[in-house]
Design a protein around this nucleic acid. Structure first.
Length: 646
DNA sequence: GCCGTTTTCGGCCCGACTGTTTTCAGTCG
């Protein structure tokens, strides 16, 4: 974990402990809010902590928390956290991981029941001792028992790609139900976060009377293995992650092994929340359930200042009454579409990926964020020469079918033995093979490249005279991924400064939920990439998403070029582009800075410009068909069009 | 513990669902 993540985790822990100890809840909220602010910082805390003023300038960080962060930066600890932890047994804190068991209940279990861990809680359930505690009846205890089982599975948040497949399966099923006008997913999935805690599904019905049977249908879908709550308009279930056929989801995201690194993702179930609502509240509900929570709170605060109140039914005039306006027949000012509500609040439409309370409410117009159809080139792909599954021609044909004007063949370099990395002689033959395919195939340019290992000391895996013969050099770290941050920074800087490098591939080498990867000083890498005209990669595979969103934002702010690549090993990998795009959008990326959006001429000229002395024998750009052969769609575009239809 | 075109002190988003309660507390999103 990076310093930012560690510091955020410490603040969040303070908040949890404060709630457990029954301290002022608003103090806990402040610590929690600050934790998320730190998590969302695009700059490294080590730079900010040098000056107290720069910390104080961050929204949600005041003098007390600034001092805690400085203390953490200098000593790696927070005294306050140590003090709080000394008062609470570690097992009590862990009990908060049990769904439905909050700080109040945990405190009662601990202080009145003497229960200090999940195992002790289980024993108390079995012995019947729990019944003696306040607000503990038969049903609560049964629920607790089931929730403990979930907590003990140690469920991590699901990677975006896995959650997406499950969500799309639910959405498709619900769309086929009688009385349903539309269905979509919301929550962090719609915002494109790299991991998803639970899945939110919104279903729109023509008549409110349809809601109960629609909800009932949802709860009886084949994936559902436990019903958590069952209301008329709201239900929660736990659903199997793996579909019956042993593959994940509808097959659009197939799990597979890749160079021995990415294997199947385990995790038996995920919580899916359903909300059923009539069409007139669709926009308000979609906004509300898309979140983020922090974005929603900011919106509501803004509404109150405007003399209005915002809830999941719409934007209403504030009349000081206690009961919700929609229950009193008050007509909303806006409610049917998200656009309408933002507009009524004097805001431009905010794309879901930006709704993180990271200054998006200061926007005066909707930024033209990058979209999936902007992408015209794939610059990181493997063939059977190393660990890919396609021949060069197959790869090129698939890329052409998907509407790209350029595909770069970038097989592994010699040190990546496990991935079939090419020794120099085989690389030279491979370059010729690529050139021959390029001569044969019409309508797409096939570039000869390599994904060159950045060795532990920052040197590259091929000599310069070999690299000079390649049209594209993607330099990536694959080994020594536990290096100290300072060592990793120097290593990657050396690669960026190398005159033959075009793209820094998956810069940290992390695998989500599996491997932390390198924690280089990203600000330094970005500055160097700008200086040496190197593009940083957003690796679109949902197990990587590397660069991550906050670093994309920092790169965008610095005017750094970015590449969004699928790291293609098999035909289906092109489908991961949507996840790279979502990550890019979360980093506020516009098309101009992304080299994959450029015209063939502009892209090929830029690649050539990095070849001093014109030693490259790269092929000239080809004419590409103006018609796009295969239409690709983004979830965001799909969601939007659904929203418009409803 | 943070924050301020009502405030430097007194606020701090809003509703659904559940279970154990005779009117509400706790949890979640």
């Amino acid at each position: 974990m990076s310093l930012n993540e560690d510091a955020a985790a410490a603040l969040a822990k303070i908040a949890r402990l404060q709630d457990l100890l029954g301290m002022d809840h608003f103090r806990a909220i402040s610590n929690d809010r600050a934790a998320r602010a730190v998590e969302g910082l695009s700059q490294d805390l080590s730079a900010l902590a040098e000056s107290r003023e720069s910390l104080l300038a961050i929204d949600g960080i005041g003098p007390k928390i600034a001092d805690k962060l400085i203390e953490f930066y200098r000593t790696g600890r927070m005294q306050e956290l140590d003090d709080l932890q000394a008062q609470v047994p570690a097992g009590v804190l862990q009990m908060l991981d049990v769904p439905g068991l909050g700080p109040k209940t945990a405190a009662v279990l601990w202080k009145q029941g003497g229960i200090e861990s999940i195992p002790q809680l289980k024993a108390a359930i079995d012995s019947g001792a729990l019944l003696d505690l306040p607000r503990m009846g038969e049903k609560s205890i049964q629920k607790l028992k089931e929730s403990i089982a979930i907590a003990e599975e140690g469920q991590k948040r699901l990677p975006l790609g896995v959650a997406m497949a499950v969500a799309e399966d639910f959405v498709e099923s619900m769309r086929r139900v009688k009385g349903v006008v539309d269905a979509t997913y919301a929550g962090s999935l719609r915002r494109g976060k790299e991991t998803i805690g639970d899945i939110d599904v919104l279903v729109c019905v023509k008549k409110p009377d349809d809601a109960p049977h629609v909800a009932e249908h949802f709860r009886s879908l084949p994936r559902v293995n436990q019903v958590l709550t069952a209301g008329a308009t709201k239900s929660s279930v736990r659903a199997a992650i793996r579909a019956d056929n042993g593959r994940v989801g509808n097959g659009s995201t197939e799990l597979r092994s890749k160079g021995g690194e990415i294997e199947e993702v385990s995790g038996p179930s995920v919580q899916v929340d359903l909300r059923v609502l009539p069409i007139e509240h669709w926009g308000a509900a979609l906004m509300y359930f898309t979140g983020s929570k922090e974005h929603n709170i900011r919106l509501r605060e803004r509404a109150l200042k405007q003399g209005r109140t915002l809830n999941d039914y719409g934007l209403f005039p504030e009349d000081g009454e206690d009961t919700p306006p929609q229950t009193r027949g008050i007509k909303p000012i806006a409610s049917r579409t998200e656009e309408e509500i933002y507009s009524a609040m004097g805001l431009p439409y905010i794309p879901p990926e930006l709704r993180e309370d990271r200054s998006e409410l200061e926007l005066t117009k909707t930024p033209r964020l990058i979209e999936i159809d902007d992408i015209k080139a794939e610059l990181h792909a493997h063939t059977t020469a190393s660990d890919g599954s396609m021949e060069i021609e197959e790869l090129a044909t698939e890329a052409k079918r998907r509407g790209f004007h350029t595909i770069a063949v970038t097989d592994h370099s010699k040190s990546s033995a496990i991935a079939g990395g090419l020794p120099v002689d085989r690389l030279l033959e491979h370059i010729n093979a690529v050139r021959r395919v390029n001569d044969r195939i019409k309508g797409i340019t096939v570039l000869a490249g390599s994904e060159v290992d950045i060795l532990a000391d920052g040197s590259l895996d091929y000599p310069d005279d070999v690299l000079a013969q390649l049209d594209v050099v993607v330099a990536s770290p694959h080994t020594a991924l536990s290096q100290e941050p300072s060592v990793a920074t120097e290593r990657l800087l050396r690669a960026i400064r190398h005159p033959h490098v075009h793209i820094l591939g998956h810069p940290t080498g992390r695998l989500i939920n599996r491997r932390a990867g390198l924690s280089p000083d990203m600000a330094k890498l970005i500055a160097a990439a700008v200086e040496h005209d190197v593009a940083l990669e957003i690796n679109a595979h949902w197990m990587r998403l590397d660069l991550r969103d906050v670093h994309v934002r920092a790169a965008v702010d610095a005017g750094c070029k970015l590449a969004i690549d699928c790291d293609v090993h098999a035909p289906g990998d092109f489908d991961n582009l949507r996840f790279g795009i979502m990550t890019a959008r979360r980093g506020w990326l516009t098309p101009d800075l992304c080299i994959n959006t450029w015209s063939a001429t502009k892209l090929h000229d830029w690649l050539q410009s990095k070849r001093s002395g014109g030693t490259s024998n790269a092929p000239p750009s080809k004419k590409v068909p103006t018609k796009q052969p295969a239409k690709r769609s983004t979830t965001e575009a799909a969601t939007k069009s659904r929203t418009k239809r409803s």
